[in-house]
Write a protein that binds this DNA or RNA. Sequence first.
DNA 1: TAAATCATGCAGGAATTCCTGCATGATTTA
DNA 2: TAAATCATGCAGGAATTCCTGCATGATTTA
Lengths: 286, 286
Amino acid sequence: MIGERIAEKMPVLSPGQKAIARFLLDNSRDAAFLTASQLGEVAGVSESTVVRFASLLGYTGYPQMRSAVRDLLIERFSTLERLRDYDRAQEGNYLHRAIAEDIRTLSEAQALVDTSALEALGAMIVNAEQVMVAGHRSSRALAHYLCYYLSWLFRGICLLDPETAFEKVANASRKSLVIGISFPRYTSWTLEILRFSSQSGMHTASITNDFSSPLATWSEVVVTVPWKPLSFIDSFTAPMSVINCVILAAAKQLGEPVTEKLERLEQIWSRNRTYVRPMKESYKKF
Amino acid sequence: MIGERIAEKMPVLSPGQKAIARFLLDNSRDAAFLTASQLGEVAGVSESTVVRFASLLGYTGYPQMRSAVRDLLIERFSTLERLRDYDRAQEGNYLHRAIAEDIRTLSEAQALVDTSALEALGAMIVNAEQVMVAGHRSSRALAHYLCYYLSWLFRGICLLDPETAFEKVANASRKSLVIGISFPRYTSWTLEILRFSSQSGMHTASITNDFSSPLATWSEVVVTVPWKPLSFIDSFTAPMSVINCVILAAAKQLGEPVTEKLERLEQIWSRNRTYVRPMKESYKKF
DNA sequence: TAAATCATGCAGGAATTCCTGCATGATTTA
DNA sequence: TAAATCATGCAGGAATTCCTGCATGATTTA
């Protein structure tokens, strides 16, 4: 596979060669048909550089590299054809089917998603003094994700953990919001937190699979997500997508300040080197 | 379109030309890549006949005809891709569109998913003495999810955290596996962990967006997931689905013991009241 | 700051691919 | 049956594409 060869050599590639690599990875469909000089042109380097790139990857020449790209393209093409012909679900191995199942659930989620509930939740988040998110076991991943992005935009975002959850809720203002995330089989912990919060007079919301969920009883706003387990796994693909929607809805309610906040974060990140530096410098490192 | 040109000329074609025409129509996928003499060979005629066939169809030369075949192929390819995309993107509000975008990315993931890489990763997990997962910031949600389910089936699963990550890796056996999860813009921390692990002689793998990812450099196995940000959010819907696949692949490699382990877990959960008791009883409670 | 190393483009020759005149044998027409 | 027409392959030249030595300027190292 050419992708692997590129990955392997990535650190030793020169800027021009990286340009070629990126073009190949992003546009393999078109690259499969280009001559060395054409590829050079679109990548902004000379024909020579392209040819040398091919031999650097271990091909005996440019034509051999192009064949590799072609094989890749043909394979993708056949996969697509096969998937179409045999209607997603049937064909492919168990991994393809697993993703197909997620796609189906997600389509359902799209059809069923309750926009007004999402926007209501968005508004609650914006107006809350503090937002606490409760999710346990597998749902904790979702809770973490939600908290992570909300904390880009809001203050007082907090991921509840079993050790201190009740204390945190007990000490929070009445104007705070507690969001519970749980899917069958619902964890007792999340339910207890939500009940306690609701009974303490706080605002509550839940992200769960259905209105019949026990969480719904203690929630002012319920965002439902169709949910289908995959073998023994819960498959949180659809909930993940809907949580994106929650974040977007909250951001939209917040309005203007979002851009400003994001810009400030950008500066902070670059000052603190949170992310890998862009290409050219990381190249130096190796 | 070339098909029409062929249809038009069909009655006046000689036997050799008909052989070419038939090959082109039946195998346009492969024909798009052949030279005149190669096409002649597979069709059982000489190069000359192929070239003359091209001009008979009204092309100025063989390369022009091949371009037409290529355009056809590319168009079919894009159509297939578009079909998968359900084109719901248009309708609905921004929340519907956000989910539609996720669906599209997921379809792409399904087409591109590298089954062999997933299974290789599954095997690595099964054979590792310990499995440590590194994910930071938004990717931490994914790392948590992966760890959570792996710990149902395997011992020695561990979610690395910034405080003790290097110490844990340094003390782990060489037979352990470190899995890095990161997407653009890659977090430095995850990269460092992976590099350190790889240089310490441990097994490494990564779940990332592309072979050109810096993580790929330090990974024996790379599982790629197409990844598209949604506004300012990363949208980990597709990665979430692929992580399900990783878990499934590992479970499948483990084989028989899975059922047994799950049954034991069931007993433990019910003994510890981890989950809310089934309907009837929980209903009484309220 | 100077020397060394490296990436890159250009140029020109090598290799490949394409095109076409001519010869040959098959098929059709008279 | 004989002449004419046609399809086809071969051969060799034209065009395109690929490859590599050399020079240049950038970057790194000492």
